[in-house]
Computed example of a mutant assay.
Amino acid sequence: MERMVGTVVRGIRTPIFREGDNISDMVVDSILKASEVEGFSINDRDIIAITESIVARTQGNYATIDAISKDVYSKFGDDAIGVIFPILSRNRFAICLRGIAKKAKKIVLMLQYPSDEVGNHLVNIDLLDEKGVNPWTDVLTENEFRNYFGYIKHTFTGVDYIDYYKSIIEEYDTECEIIFSNNPKTILNYTTSVLVCDIHSRARTKRILKANGGVKIYGLDDILTSSIDGSGYNETYGLLGSNKATEESIKLFPRDCQLVVDSIQARLKEKTGKTVEVMVYGDGAFKDPVGKIWELADPVVSPAYTKGLEGTPNEIKLKYLADNNFAHLKGEELKKAISEHIKNKESNLVGAMEAQGTTPRRLTDLIGSLCDLTSGSGDKGTPVVYIQGYFDNYTK
Rank of each mutant, 00 (worst) to 15 (best):
F93D: 04
V72D: 05
K210A: 14
N344G: 07
L111A: 10
S231A: 03
T272L: 06
V123I: 15
I250Y: 05
L373I: 08
G99A: 03
R45C: 12
D126S: 15
A352R: 13
I125C: 14
I23R: 04
L88F: 15
I178T: 04
S227Y: 07
N91L: 13
H341K: 14
N324R: 10
G232R: 00
M110Q: 12
G311I: 10
V9H: 07
L309C: 08
M1H: 01
P114Q: 08
R98C: 10
I316A: 03
A34L: 10
K380T: 15
H200F: 11
S249D: 05
G291D: 05
I162V: 14
I100G: 01
V384L: 11
R90W: 05
I168G: 05
D262P: 06
V260D: 02
I338D: 12
S30P: 03
T7S: 08
D221W: 03
Q356V: 08
C197S: 11
Y386Q: 02
T358C: 10
T157D: 06
M110C: 11
T275P: 00
K210Q: 11
T58E: 10
E332G: 00
I162T: 04
V72W: 02
I95M: 03
I125P: 11
N22S: 14
Y73W: 09
G213F: 11
I217N: 08
I217H: 03
K380E: 13
N324C: 09
R57N: 08
V350F: 13
D29K: 10
P383F: 13
S69G: 15
V139D: 13
